[in-house]
Amino acid sequence: MREGVRLEVRGATWRAAGRDIVADIDLVCEPGTVTGLLGPNGSGKTTLINLLAGQARPASGGVWVGARDLHGLPSRERARLVGLVEQQASTTLDLTVREVVELGRIPHRRGRLSVLDQSPEDTAVVDDALRFADVLELADRSWQTLSGGERQRTQLARAVAQRPAVLLLDEPTNHLDLGHQLDFLTRVRGLGLTTVAALHDLELAAAYCDRVAVLDAGRLVAAGPVHEVLTSALIADVYGVEATVEPHPLHDRPHVRWNGPRQEVGA
């Protein structure tokens, strides 16, 4: 597997229809760490992920991967540096799992005129990725017949086959049951890449992330180690929810228990 590199966002702003969707984002992700991107619906998580993935170009500021300005790179080179797993991928085509994972080799291919399928190196990388995401035995199955968990693992394998240094996940566990959520994030941690994952579930964020960054109305309101940032005051502030954050009885990570909507004083 490839080593993660440092990911740095400096003053990134993105506008749509004259309105700032995210503004002045400064964020540093150290090599090989997992950063959880938190915030309520509409706070700009997906937009920020898209900026980090090079899907959109910031109106001002920028994103640096190692020493390189991500938005100044040719698209093919960018794709060899940053991998993205979307919330829910869909296609009408009848692709096998292996064919989906092989898509990850596209930015690495040279002989583009070739009718031939894969180079031996491509095949080895794809096999590794299939094994890593535990979909090797599904390799010849049609994508259309997969369950939600299998599809998400296949997409992870595709991103792994891309051999990126940075992995971006946009609410990757939204459509998974609890067991598959834990399994998916355990695999992601095992990659050792610099990872940013937009997450809804604070409990999952607390359990799997080294650091969290919290967005509210397009602004970064907090960023740091999980137990420093994830406090009941912040949750009340950003989500409008009364919650208790306490040490988990079995491990040292924080445990979030919500009590109900925040009681507005004087409301």
Binding site: N50, E77, R80, L84, A89, T91, I106
Partner: peptide
């Protein structure tokens, strides 16, 4: 195969 955003993330302009 998986749409425009996926194509872009695979390095397609």
């Amino acid at each position: 195969a998986f749409g425009e955003a996926a194509a872009r993330s695979l390095g397609v302009d």
